[in-house]
């Protein structure tokens, strides 16, 4: 698949990625709730697909568990299904199908059975949808053997990653899109921030730095919806001449710690940021892996930053007071550098 070089928003990139993947391979089918044009999906990520590929786009009943099972069945019989779960919160209903079915077929029969399927879903808050439509629950799906969890930031060419997952993966992928990223242009750098050249690989970890020469004073690690917050903090700190690297893996499980550890080894101070709630979180895995990798080489313990462990209120102030913010991150960086 050729890289998408047209300037676009995160959402447009995903939409183009889906169009390209379906155009490239007739085995690709798309299924989900309310995905037909003119509606085109609750967040319009699937816009235009049903018009262009009417036989391969399936609007489904409100049955998240069953459509996930449907995808497994289609994948086992030679198709490459992509399933849209309307809100990430609804992934709870897919858990049995993912854990006890989709990821088992590939390995439990003694020889590898291909199960090429992608479950994609919008995650996260900041849009006032309240306690059951704003969560970031992907941590519950991390650490499942056989499941790849991908959550690109807006620094990644999100649509290319989605296209690569659809075209190349032979086992199930959970693709987490952050709703708060949908309207943002893909980030390629700014006056104060530079994006390091992408290493090879479909889902390469991207690094954004607020300095040209020298070493980072601290490294911020995160994925998905917290990327714009971390970039904002990096811009603020640039003005204070504090060097910060923002490290953005796309594959959050299983985790390749090497590119993260490489940057952290220079700074010796690291903060892990996520929008999900604190406790038994993704940051705990990152911190543990960094401590294993860099034992004795860090100046401070790895600091975890997450949203408060409580429900997400609908009110603007209530939501803002619950979810991790740029101010929280900035304050934490100062504490770590103190």
């Amino acid at each position: 698949m050729t890289p998408d070089t047209t300037p676009s928003t995160y959402l447009q990139s995903l939409n183009r990625g889906l169009h390209a993947a379906m155009a490239a391979d007739e085995a690709v089918h798309f299924a989900g709730e309310d995905v037909l044009d003119p509606y085109g999906g609750a967040f319009k990520v699937s816009a235009g697909l049903s018009t262009r590929f009417p036989d391969r786009v399936h609007t489904t009943p409100i049955s998240e568990g069953a459509i996930t099972g449907l995808a497994s069945g289609m994948a086992l019989r030679g198709l490459k299904p992509v399933v849209e779960i309307m809100f990430g919160d609804f992934l709870t209903l897919t858990f049995d199908q993912i854990l006890n079915h989709a990821v088992k077929f590939g390995a439990m029969y003694g020889t590898e059975v291909p199960v090429p399927m992608v479950i994609r879903t919008p995650m996260g808050g900041r849009r006032g949808y309240g306690p059951t439509h704003s969560q970031s629950i992907e941590k519950h799906f991390c650490g499942i053997p056989g499941l790849k969890v991908i959550s690109p930031s807006h620094v990644h060419a999100a649509g290319d990653l989605l296209g690569a997952a659809i075209a190349s993966e032979t086992q199930p992928v959970l693709f987490i899109e952050y709703k708060s990223l949908y309207p943002l242009p893909l980030f390629t750098g700014s006056e104060l921030l530079n994006v390091a050249p992408a290493p090879t690989g479909s889902y390469a970890t991207r690094i954004v730095r607020n300095f040209e020469t020298g070493e980072p004073d601290a490294v911020l690690i995160g994925y998905g919806g917290v990327a714009p917050l971390m970039l904002e903090v990096a811009e603020r700190l640039a003005e204070e001449e504090i060097n910060v690297s923002v490290v953005l893996p796309a594959v959050i499980s299983p985790l390749d710690i090497a590119p993260i550890a490489q940057e952290v080894a220079c700074a010796r101070r690291a903060l892990v940021v996520e929008e999900g709630v604190a406790g038994f979180d993704w940051g705990a895995e990152v911190a543990a892996r960094l401590h294993e990798t860099l034992f004795g080489k860090l100046d401070r313990p790895v600091r975890r930053l997450a949203s408060k462990p409580q429900i997400i209120p609908t009110s603007k102030d209530g939501e803002a007071g619950t979810l991790i913010s740029a101010d929280d991150i900035e304050a934490a960086v100062y504490e770590e550098l103190a």
Binding site: G65, A66, G69, A71, S72, G73, P81, Q97, K104
Partner: peptide, 21 residues
């Protein structure tokens, strides 16, 4: 598969695959 009920949607997905092919 030893999980009861879960193979129903999977079977239906397989049927979707066979019908498509």
């Amino acid at each position: 598969n030893g999980i009861l009920g879960g193979m129903a949607p999977v079977s239906v997905g397989m049927a979707m695959g066979e019908k498509t092919k």
